[in-house]
Structure formats: C-alpha cells, structure tokens
C-alpha cells in the first residue's frame, strides 16, 4: 500500500467575488521512500494541493476528496493523532526559509524546540541531536551555527537549517514546496542533491513541488504535471520525458530554453495567459492555449486515460493526446 494516497481532491475557496476552483479531481500516490515531483506554474494548484494535506489552508477553503496516509484519513484526523501527524509523520519545507525561521531566535533554540516538545528530549540530548542534524544537512561547524541567528547565514545555509528542522523527528514524508526557487543555481543544485541524498539515506518519501521540470527530472520516481488546478499528466519520470503525451507537458518542455539549444533559437511560447480559476471547470483548462485543441476539448472535461505504450502508470487527461515529438 502506498504511504500517501490522494483521491479526487478538490479545493474550493469562497471569496467575495465568488468561488475559486483552485484544485479539482487531483489523484496521486506516494510510495514509502519514493520521490515524486508535482510540476506546475503559479495557479496550477500544486501548492494548494499539499497545503490542504498539511492543514495550512485558510478557513475559506472547502476540501473534498480523500487523502490516506498509512491508513489514516488525513482530513479527519483524531485530535490526539493530529499533533503526531503534523509534527512527526510529515514535515514540510517552504520556498522562503525566512518564513520558517524566527529572526530573533538562535538557530539552536529553533532546532531543539520541536524535539523537546514532540519527543520530550532533555536540553542536552536535544542539542546533541541538533548538532547531528546540522551535520546531516552538511552544515560545516554545526556547534558554532547553533549560536547564530538566521540573518547571519546565507540563503542556502538557511534552507539547510529549515531542512534540518523538518528532519528533527524523522518524518516518513517530507514535502518541499519550491525549496530552491529563491536560490542561485549552484546552491539550488546542492540543496536538491542534499534532499535526494537524505531521502535515500533516511528512507523518507519526498514530494518535491516546483515550476521547473529540470529540477525534478533527475531526482524523482514519478512526476505529476498540473495546470489550472487539474492533473494534466502523471507518469514515472523517465516515461514522462520519453513518451510525453499531453500538449501542455509538450508545450512546457519546448517553451523553456535549455543549454543544448544554440543561441538565438526561436522559442515556442505557450500563447495566452494562465486560466481564470473563478470559472467552474467544465472543459479542459488548457484548451484556450492549446495548439491541438478540438471541439471536444471545449465542451467537456477530458477523462483521465492510461497510456498503453511505455511504462505502466502513465496517465493523462486529454482528448487529443500527442504522442512523441511535437
């Protein structure tokens, strides 16, 4: 059985200007110790999806569907189990490390707090564990870092501290929401490699949320591509790249410049703007921008189908799939 199983998740926000359909019909699963990437642009619903799991949405959000973690119903946790679930089972790392760090507290204090609360460790044991954790995320001279404040660290170091905090209670699942977007390429690579290494070493499942297909390409087992609050395509990572089916995934891949393109290569942009989530989803959200659009795309929601060729578990929601190079 999968560690995390999300089925038909829908999140609707009620706002002054009517409902906003942020996430609709989202299903995916995460195996124990596996890494999956959720890829999408802003407004794709990727962050809302995981925030609904982490109970981080405002009260204006209405959540439908189910999420099962190790047999537990995530959306209806017993109060006694909640603390353990959010503090120990699952941990999350955010894009901006400063939102997770208290600027007026020393790193050591922030690291040991959670352990002393959840595991009732003594001050000495917690400090020892904190040094161990900083070592784990490859921060040099950890004992010295414990006495520093967040502003004394670089962006990359802060994100490492945040990751160390997330690892404090040995979570079985780590969710990282755009963990490297604000960082330089060199630091980004190091942090991603670190997350990948930690996942293997600690046998921890990893959900990596990003807007950049390149980030998840070499570091995940499965990828879910989202657009307009819906899953467009989901597949084992290699298969997604080898047998891209959905026009949106194609468009996403070909619109981004890469290092192997000669200079001046004309890009193929996706025309138009991202969808308006205030409109109830009744047709394919990508239809207005899709170059392979058909009449059927505009009249009904595409059903999720399974690709026959290629590896198993390759699904897509499109009535006019484009197999191979487009």
């Amino acid at each position: 059985m999968a560690l995390l199983e999300v089925r038909d998740l829908a999140v609707t926000f009620s706002t002054a200007n009517g409902p906003v359909y942020a996430v609709s019909d989202v299903s995916f699963s995460v195996e124990r110790g596996a890494a999956i990437g959720i890829v999408g642009e802003s407004g794709s619903g990727k962050s809302v999806t995981v925030k609904s799991l982490m109970n981080l949405l405002p009260s204006s959000a209405k959540i439908d569907g189910t999420a099962t973690y190790d047999g537990l119903d995530v959306f209806n946790l017993e109060p006694s189990r909640r603390k353990h679930f959010y503090g120990v089972d699952v941990a999350m790392v955010f894009q901006n490390p400063m939102t997770s760090l208290n600027p007026v507290k020393r790193i050591g204090e922030q690291l040991t707090e959670g352990m002393r609360f959840h595991r009732k460790l003594s001050r000495g044991d917690a400090t020892a564990r904190a040094v161990e954790l900083l070592d784990l995320v490859r921060i040099p001279d950890p004992a010295k870092r414990l006495r520093q404040y967040p502003h004394e660290l670089s962006g990359g170091m802060r994100q490492r501290v945040v990751i160390a905090m997330a690892l404090a209670n040995d979570p079985a699942l780590l969710i990282a929401d755009e963990p490297t977007t604000a960082l330089d390429v060199t630091v980004q690579r190091d942090i991603l490699d670190l997350l990948d290494g930690l996942r293997r070493d600690l046998d921890m499942a990893l959900v990596l949320i990003t807007h950049d297909l390149g980030v998840v390409r070499d570091r995940t087992d499965d990828i879910v591509v989202m657009y307009g609050g819906r899953v467009m395509e989901g597949a084992p990572t290699e298969d997604l790249f080898a047998n891209t089916v959905h026009p949106y995934t194609h468009a996403l891949r070909s619109s981004i410049p890469n290092m192997s393109m000669p200079r001046g290569t004309r890009l193929s942009p996706i025309p138009g703007s991202p969808p308006d989530l205030a409109i109830a989803p009744t047709s394919c959200p990508f239809a207005p921008r899709c170059t392979h659009v058909t009449d059927a795309c505009r009249t009904a929601l595409p059903a999720t189908k399974t690709l026959d060729s290629g590896a198993s578990g390759h699904t897509y929601a499109c009535v006019n799939p484009q197999l191979g190079e487009v």
Binding site: S254, T265, R266, L267, S268, P269, E325, V326
Partner: peptide, 8 residues
C-alpha cells in the same frame, strides 16, 4: 520544432 516566426 520551433516555429520560426509566430506572432507575439
């Protein structure tokens, strides 16, 4: 693959 000159 890429169109040479699509309208912007």
């Amino acid at each position: 693959m890429a169109d040479t000159h699509e309208p912007v």
